[in-house]
Design a protein around this nucleic acid. Structure first.
Lengths: 135, 135
DNA sequence: TGAATACTTAACCATATGGTTTAGTATTGA
DNA sequence: TCAATACTAAACCATATGGTTAAGTATTCA
């Protein structure tokens, strides 16, 4: 199947929500209680707690209960992996910018097809064989 | 409401799925048709097309139809913004790693509370005033 | 002790997401 | 021209997501 990283899934998934990014931003000011975090947001405390739980599952936040108060703090690890993943693509998307206009307006053939045409083959169908599917 | 970036939402959202990351990886080898992209995945062509549409809406992929074939290619812009966002947090999560053990096991009071205690105030409730909510 | 605080849990809801199958349309090539 | 190719569109489905309200529990403080 597909090369799979549960870490990247949950990291990017956690960062995809503006409320959660705002919570992380708030935590850069230091540890905060649930009510602290909920304060700026126009949503209920349980809703904010769900967001915090998503951030915790993604490893972006750690929690600790002191008395009746739950404190949250930024946690370190997985953002590094996400940043590395994106950085790895930088040269490709920088290259892509150069060739974008040509791709969209002038040259009708992408690299893969041109290679294969040079080899004087028919179009390479990577999915010629249909797969068995569950269900 | 919350500081909001539709671009970061859709960029991180698009990157949160392993199939879509695999499609981007495949496109680093050059432009590819829909069937090319669908090839390695154990899912139907319409499913892959939905993923490509998500990537296109996020601005990560551009498309072009030539005859009956639809070609896709990496597009440049929004990964930069996402990488910048993450990079901006690096110093915080590096710092967080140093203070994590103390936070979790020894020191019961986070920075914000300690500040306020020094000021001899009661705990600052950022959400003391309840908000009006829609619905 | 008893009221206020700070979560916590549960049930619920609407919409989004990620997949399917089926039945098309438009192109291509023998 | 006619069959095969390569998408495309629509209807459908299960589960996830992001929110709510209501009713708890556990702590704290006067």
């Amino acid at each position: 199947m597909v090369k799979y990283s549960a870490t990247l899934d949950s990291t990017f998934g956690a960062l995809a929500d503006p409320t959660r990014r705002a919570i992380l931003a708030s935590l850069t000011l230091g540890g905060a209680s649930m009510s602290d975090l909920a304060g700026p947001h126009l949503m209920s405390l349980p809703a904010v707690m769900k967001h915090v739980r998503v951030l915790e599952k993604a490893g972006l936040v750690s929690q600790k209960k002191v008395g009746r108060t739950r404190f949250c703090q930024l946690a370190p690890a997985p953002l590094k992996q996400a940043e590395d993943w994106i950085a790895q693509y930088r040269r490709f998307w920088e290259g892509a910018f150069d060739s974008l206009e040509r791709f969209l307006s002038q040259d009708p053939l992408p690299e893969r097809q041109k290679e294969k045409q040079k080899e004087n083959q028919s179009w390479p169908h990577r999915n010629r064989s249909r797969k068995t599917r569950s269900r």
